[in-house]
Simulated assay, not measured.
Amino acid sequence: MHLVAVFSLCMGVLGCAGLPKGVLTPVQAIVPGSSRVNLLVATTRAPTSDPGVLFSGERGQGLQTTEITVSIPPEENRQVGQVQWPKRLPPDPSTEFATTKVKTLSDLSEIRGWLNQHLPHSRRVLIFVHGFNNRYEEAVYRFAQIVHDSHADVAPILFTWPSRANVLDYAYDRESTNYSRTQLEEVLRRAAQDPSVGDVTVMAHSMGSWLVTEALRQMAIRDGRVAPKIRNVILASPDLDIDVFRRQSQELGLPRPKLTLFVSQDDQALSVSRLIGGDVDRLGQINPAVEPYRAELERAGVTVLDLTALKSGDPLNHGKFAESPEVVRLLGERLVAGQTISGDKTSVGNRLEAVAAGAAQTVGSAASLLIQPR
């Protein structure tokens, strides 16, 4: 069983092994119909001398911030939910993602200037934290894809922590999330305390969910509660020990942010994580319709989207939240805006064919939604 699981995980990683390195060197990309996504990227990674890589998987000293603009190909040349990686360098901006701007922001005044320039009328900020086995440029391009495809009305901020992007470095990556807790708390605090910001949504994938919950827990312990402007937390395929998560969530103080989970029982990456972690259920792999989870989620007011029935191009079923066109649109149109999806009869809800289950009709209860394929 262990060998089969590890082999499956390695096969998933090999699918990314051919991705080109050095894609962050800016190029001219004036292509009719293309789009631009401008990101603020904060990192605890160590810098490199390669301008196409910028930051390695090793741990750096302090927090460094960069403004990066990514060009997205015209809609007719791409599929929603996918990152069109360059086949070779320099990239072809008409059919591939390309970097068009990289600027180091060296002080708080420059960071505030970026926020003032990119904060939309909604005054909403979205902070994304990636998961295990991600290079810096992979996190940048994936978040740019999510922001573009979701049409989220936000100022997008990426927090990227030191991952060696190696399947055998799971323990190193996990310790790197602990290494980065205080710096993520700092980013969250800055955003929440900025008077121009109306509210903050935090979204994390996989192992990044551990980092987010730990940073929020640390903030709550320090201040007595999570900052009021941090109203929504979205955990996609969270690689969290279910017992540890119970304790973390209890220590977030009151009132807590609204929590939404994306889970999938066929997530093979989390099956491996469960084996490594002592055979304890992972939060991102639970069945929210069965006990004790159903009652616990209802009491906590947690919204759970069960994506098990959705199929994706990811053989590990670990990235459905970003690859499904329906789900990324749901993120932009509803969840990032803090809106409920229970009993959703909008166009998004109709596309998802989401059916509320159990106690989802009760005000304040958990909404357990089964997301069905079209």
Rank of each mutant, 00 (worst) to 15 (best):
M1T: 15
H2K: 13
F7Y: 14
S8Q: 09
S8Y: 05
S8P: 00
G12V: 00
A17G: 11
G18H: 15
G18A: 15
L19Y: 10
L19I: 14
I30C: 12
I30N: 15
V31N: 09
P32C: 02
S35Y: 13
V37G: 03
L39I: 02
L39M: 01
L40E: 01
T44M: 09
P47V: 06
V53R: 08
F55T: 01
E58M: 05
R59G: 10
G62P: 12
L63A: 06
T69L: 12
V70W: 02
S71K: 03
I72Q: 06
P74D: 05
E76L: 12
R78M: 06
V80W: 00
W85V: 06
K87H: 13
K87I: 05
P91C: 09
D92M: 11
P93W: 00
S94E: 15
E96A: 08
E96D: 11
E96H: 11
A98N: 05
T99R: 00
L105Q: 10
L105R: 09
L105K: 09
G113W: 04
Q117A: 15
H118I: 08
L119P: 07
S122W: 04
R123H: 09
R124H: 12
F128N: 02
H130S: 12
N134F: 11
N134S: 12
E137Q: 15
A139W: 01
A139K: 04
R142W: 04
A144P: 12
V147H: 00
H151Q: 11
D153C: 08
A155Q: 05
I157C: 03
R164A: 12
Y170V: 11
D173M: 04
E175S: 12
E175M: 09
Y179K: 05
Q183P: 01
E185W: 04
V187F: 11
A191S: 15
A191E: 11
A192N: 10
S196Q: 14
M203E: 02
A204Y: 08
S206K: 05
S209R: 05
R222G: 08
R222Y: 07
R225P: 01
K229V: 06
I230Q: 02
R231I: 04
V233E: 01
V233Y: 03
L235H: 05
S237H: 13
D239I: 03
I242F: 08
E251S: 13
L254A: 14
P257Q: 08
L259T: 07
F262S: 03
V263P: 02
A269T: 06
G277F: 06
G284P: 02
I286F: 05
L297P: 04
L310C: 05
G313Q: 15
G313P: 14
H318Q: 01
G319P: 00
R334I: 09
L335V: 04
L335H: 01
V336T: 07
G338D: 09
Q339W: 09
T340V: 09
N350H: 13
R351P: 02
R351V: 07
V355T: 13
A357Y: 06
T362I: 13
T362Y: 04
G364K: 00
S365F: 00
A366E: 05
P373K: 09
